[in-house]
C-alpha cells in the first residue's frame, strides 16, 4: 500500500512583516505548513507500522523542489511534485485539483493525509475537495489513527466531543496538530533526502480539469488597524485605579 501526504509550500509566516498594513513577502523563505508536518509525521508512523511507502505530494512554483527536501528528510520515501511558475499563491480549488490529479498517478493509494488547514490561508477546503474529486470517504480533525485489516479507526477531535469513526480504504484524513510531536530529522536523514526519488510533472500532465479563472476574488488583504491607547502604567495600584475609573472593574 502507498500512503500519500499532501503538503503546501507557504511563506514562513514568522518572517512576514507588515508595512503600511500590507504584508511584505520579499525575501521571506518558503517552508511547509506546520500542521502539514504533523500530517507527515502521522504518515511516517503509519508507514512504519504497515510496511507501506510514503509519498509526499505538493504543487507549487520551482522552489518546491528545494522546499520538499524537508519532508523527504523527515521520512517521506518519494516526492510527487506538480511544478509550474504560475502556481504561486494558488487557490484551494486549483490546489485540490492538482493534488487529486497527482494522487491518481500513484498506484494503490490507501490513505491520503492532510493538515486540517494550511499555515497561510487555513481555509481547510483542500482535503474535502480532493475527497469529493476522488469520490472517497473523508475523516477530518483526526487526533489518532489506527490501521488494521485494510480499515482505519480514527478518533476525530471536534469542539465538544470526540468521535470514533471507522472507514474502509482508500480514505482521506485530515489531522490536528495534537496528533503527534513532529520529530526533527537527523543529519543522516537530511543528507539522504537529496537522493530520494522525485517525480516532477506539470499541470498539463495530469488528467484533471482545472478552473481557468479565479473563483474567488480578493478585494483587499490588510493588517487590521489597531487603535489602542498604549498607556504605560508604573504600578499595580495605578493600573487598578485606571481600570476602576473606566468602569471596567469594581462594578
Amino acid at each position: 500500500m502507498n500512503i500519500v501526504v499532501a503538503m503546501k509550500q507557504i511563506p514562513d509566516l514568522q518572517q512576514v512583516r507588515i508595512r503600511n498594513r500590507q504584508p511584505v513577502f520579499e525575501d521571506v523563505p518558503l517552508t511547509l505548513g506546520n500542521i502539514d508536518k504533523n500530517a507527515l509525521e502521522a504518515g511516517v508512523t503509519l508507514k512504519e507500522a504497515a510496511d507501506a511507502k510514503l509519498f509526499v505530494v505538493s504543487a507549487g512554483n520551482e522552489e518546491l523542489e528545494d522546499t520538499v527536501k524537508e519532508a523527504l528528510a523527515a521520512g517521506a520515501d518519494e516526492a510527487f511534485l506538480v511544478i509550474d511558475d504560475a502556481l504561486d499563491h494558488i487557490s484551494s480549488d486549483v490546489s485540490a485539483a492538482l493534488i487529486a490529479g497527482a494522487v491518481k498517478k500513484i498506484d494503490a493509494v490507501g490513505i491520503i493525509l492532510f493538515g486540517e488547514g494550511s499555515g497561510d490561508n487555513y481555509s481547510g477546503q483542500v482535503a474535502s475537495r480532493v475527497a469529493e474529486i476522488l469520490d472517497l470517504p473523508q475523516i477530518g480533525y483526526a487526533k489518532a489513527i489506527e490501521l488494521a485489516d485494510n480499515k482505519v479507526k480514527v478518533v476525530r477531535s471536534l469542539e465538544d466531543c470526540e468521535e470514533v469513526v471507522e472507514s474502509e480504504l482508500p480514505v482521506v484524513i485530515s489531522v490536528v496538530s495534537d496528533i503527534n510531536e513532529v520529530r526533527i530529522p537527523s543529519v543522516t536523514q537530511i543528507l539522504k533526502a537529496g537522493k530520494k526519488p522525485k517525480e516532477v510533472v506539470e499541470p498539463d500532465d495530469l488528467d484533471i480539469a482545472i478552473n481557468a479563472k479565479p473563483i474567488v476574488a480578493t478585494l483587499s488583504n490588510l493588517a487590521p488597524e489597531s487603535a489602542r491607547k498604549g498607556i504605560a502604567v508604573k504600578s499595580v495600584d495605578e493600573l487598578v485605579k485606571a481600570l476602576t475609573t473606566e468602569g471596567l472593574i469594581g462594578r
Partner: peptide, 13 residues
C-alpha cells in the same frame, strides 16, 4: 488570512 496577520475581504465569483 496569513495566520491572522491580515484580514482579507473576498468575494466568490
Amino acid at each position: 488570512a496569513l495566520g491572522g496577520a491580515t484580514v482579507a475581504v473576498q468575494q466568490i465569483e
